[in-house]
Design a protein around this nucleic acid. Structure first.
Length: 560
RNA sequence: UGGGGCGUGGCCAAGCGGUAAGGCGCCGGCCUUUGGAGCCGGUAUUCGAAGGUUCGAAUCCUUCCGCCCCAACCA
């Protein structure tokens, strides 16, 4: 299924029904509301696809709104990266780039209105006391002694909170709802807290900041959002969302709907924990190719199309899920197979000397850039007497199912010649040093005129023409399927479950000359190995490639 | 022990009272100058469990079981 052929999920059914019923005048406005406190990950991609595509499918639009209500955790670095990532994923928000912080003045006004209606009060209990009064899961909470504060006093105190007369934590503004509510979210939730902190956009103009539960529904209303999608952990907050909308008397009445967040096995999706990996240098940064971040995947060579396709295949539902990372990799292979030009690269070179090939001679062989797409064209690749083949493609004493090169065996060098291994050269220690063999001049291009067949086709690169390359091989970041769960169960540090083999740097790689100075981010299929993307660390004379994903390998080594 | 959400094959996921879509994975076969790709075929007598309603239930009712979320002045 390609982009555009969207499946019907419960969210789209709701929206379709609303549109059919003429709700909101038939308009559909959504929003993607990231908090700029970290980089976007694949879980956000699912939300982004939902938000933008639903709006698109119903002729509406999606706003990009930064939920920047907590200055101590947020930073412009994050808003920049978020914009880059959303754009890279292929979505546009035109001029609808909004910030909750742009609404601070309006939000303040709504808070005052709530106080005037006797629906909010300034509480002077400290954080510990508020927690103690909140009750527990099974016991109701107790009302704060400040709950009955007169409206005029609340108004005065709230104004002075804003004016900066009090230190952090001295007071807080709370909604007056129900301390006995079984839904803890409704037990007089905090609406505003004092934070003498620098905000990345408003600087020092404010020292009180609205809480998510207050700012979010109102921001939605201010923007005319009709359908506000969020993840399941906010289900309990929906009554509060509706309470805020109702009592603040906003003209628009956005509605919140919740879906299950995306989880992937062998990785984690918590921004807090990803930040920890970055800060403790367990990875190279937010865009380390092993990270489940959009920027990490981009650097690794994943395409936006593949990620979007993955998001549609994963679906939208309310069931908790842990998606197999294999599905993501499948989507990446599927897209790259179509678009990546083929190239020759040998990761662990083993020299093969063709003794009957004229010394000092070389020739240019034609190769197709893509076996299924003639339009991709052809290129010329040098061939000579000494070539490198993959170390893994030779076995002196091969098992039954191994049909690559072995002593006395003939195989094909892709688009070149049929060659036969005639001699195994070892050093004093008995280690394999190089191979000698012969080629059949009549098989130029790879086909034998007499019609004889070979079982294997190997990739290769001419030794004297090869370019050295560094190749970075990636494996899953964690050793266990559910790192969070496993760490909690064993009460161990999450970092103890990191896969020590998640990054292997191969420095002795040899690639064909055309790969000498690849364009930044250029993606190739290294034949028989996998898909690789040129990394920004590439230098002149030493290109660096990230293995995006390996090819599926039909040969199962070891016992079946 | 309170409130809420959810339980369909290994992982996702359709299904909305008429007799279990699809994808990934897996297993066969074909084809192949990538053990890639592609192409064919197979893979739940059963929908967390037990009762009930009905000619007929994954779909309706009842009870039970299991998993997840909530007690930040985080989002």
């Amino acid at each position: 299924m390609r982009d555009g052929a969207e499946p019907r999920d419960f969210i789209r059914e709701i929206v379709a029904a609303d549109v059919a019923a003429g709700k909101n005048g038939g308009a559909v406005v959504t929003r993607f509301p990231p908090e700029p406190n970290g980089y976007l990950h694949i879980g956000h991609a699912k939300a982004i696809c939902l938000d933008f595509r639903v709006a698109n499918e119903f002729g509406g639009h999606c706003n990009l709104r930064f939920d920047d209500t907590n200055p101590v955790k947020e930073d412009v670095e994050y808003v920049d990266s978020i914009k880059d990532d959303v754009r890279w994923l292929g979505f546009e928000w035109d001029d609808r780039e909004y910030y909750a912080s742009d609404y601070y003045e309006q939000l303040y006004g709504f808070a005052v209105r709530l106080i005037e209606k006797g629906l909010a009060y300034v509480d002077s209990l400290n954080a510990d006391e508020i927690r103690a009064h909140r009750g527990t899961l099974t016991e109701p909470g107790k009302e704060s002694p400040f709950r009955a504060r007169p409206i005029a006093e609340n108004l005065d105190l709230f104004a002075r909170m804003r004016a900066g007369e009090f230190p952090d934590g001295a007071h807080v503004l709370r909604a007056k709802i129900d301390m006995r509510a079984p839904n803890i979210t409704m037990r007089d939730p905090v609406l505003y807290r004092i934070r003498h902190a620098h905000h990345h956009r408003t600087g020092g103009t404010w020292c009180i900041y609205p809480m998510y539960d207050f700012a979010h529904p109102l921001s939605d209303a201010i923007e005319g959002v009709t359908h506000s999608f969020c993840t399941l952990e906010y289900v309990d907050h929906r009554p509060l969302y509706d309470w805020i909308i109702t009592h603040c008397g906003t003209p628009a009445t956005p509605r919140q709907y919740e879906f299950a967040r995306l989880n992937l096995n062998y990785t984690i999706m918590s921004k807090r924990k990803l930040l920890q990996l970055v800060e403790q240098k367990h990875v190279g940064g937010w865009d380390d190719p092993r990270m489940p971040t959009i920027s990490g995947m981009r650097r690794r060579g994943y395409t936006a199309e593949a990620i979007r396709e993955f998001c549609t295949r994963v679906g939208i539902a309310k069931k908790e899920n842990i998606i197999d990372i294999g599905l993501l990799e499948h989507c990446v292979r599927e897209d790259l197979n179509r678009r990546a030009p083929r190239a020759m690269a040998v990761l662990r070179p083993l020299k093969l000397v063709l003794t009957n090939y004229p010394e000092g001679h070389s020739e240019q062989l034609e190769m197709v850039n893509h076996p299924d797409q003639p339009d991709a064209g052809r290129r010329r690749v040098p061939f000579s007497r000494e070539i490198y083949i993959e170390r893994d493609d030779f076995l002196e004493d091969p098992p039954k199912k191994f049909f690559r090169l072995a002593p006395g065996r003939e195989v094909r060098l892709r688009s070149a010649y049929l060659v036969t291994c005639t001699e195994v050269v070892k050093n004093a220690a008995g280690e394999l040093v190089e191979l000698r063999g012969t080629y059949d001049p009549a098989t130029r291009g790879g086909d034998a005129p007499d019609g004889r067949k070979v079982k294997a086709t190997l990739h290769w690169v001419s030794a004297s023409h090869a370019v050295d390359a560094e190749v970075r091989l990636y494996e899953r970041l964690f050793t266990v399927e559910d790192p969070d769960g496993a760490a909690a169960k064993a009460s161990a540090e999450l970092t103890t479950l990191l896969n020590p083999a998640s990054l292997e740097v191969v420095t002795g790689g040899k690639v064909e000359p055309s790969l000498g100075t690849p364009a930044a981010g250029a993606r190739y299929q290294f034949e028989r190995l996998g898909y690789f993307a040129a990394d920004r660390d590439s230098r002149d004379g030493m290109p660096v490639f990230n293995r995006t994903v390996s090819l599926k390998d039909g040969f199962k080594s070891g016992t079946p």
